[in-house]
Amino acid sequence: MRFNVLEHQLVPEHRLVAEEDADRVLKALKITRDQLPKIRKSDPVIQVLEKIEGPIEEGRIIRVTRVSGTAGVSEAYRLVIGR
């Protein structure tokens, strides 16, 4: 890894959601896991997170917190998928 993409100005904050919190998140959104937007395991952001959190299996959820022009701060979630 040449550099930490999370430190780039244009990359929003990504955090691994603890497995015990995942269900709470899904329940709040009233959705199932497969309805989440996806992020690949090969995504540079996941690679960085794996350095911090250890291996991240498929099916884990990532919280993306970004600065929003309309809402100030907005939260989104991603489902980790293979490859």
Binding site: L29, I31, Q35, P37, S68, T70, A71, S74, A76
Partner: peptide, 22 residues
């Protein structure tokens, strides 16, 4: 109805319309 933007497969594209739901 819940403010999410979804596609035909009912997966979420945006968690809140326009991020602020306005």
């Amino acid at each position: 109805e819940d403010g999410t933007v979804r596609n035909t497969a009912d997966t979420i594209i945006q968690f809140k319309f326009g991020e602020d739901g306005v």
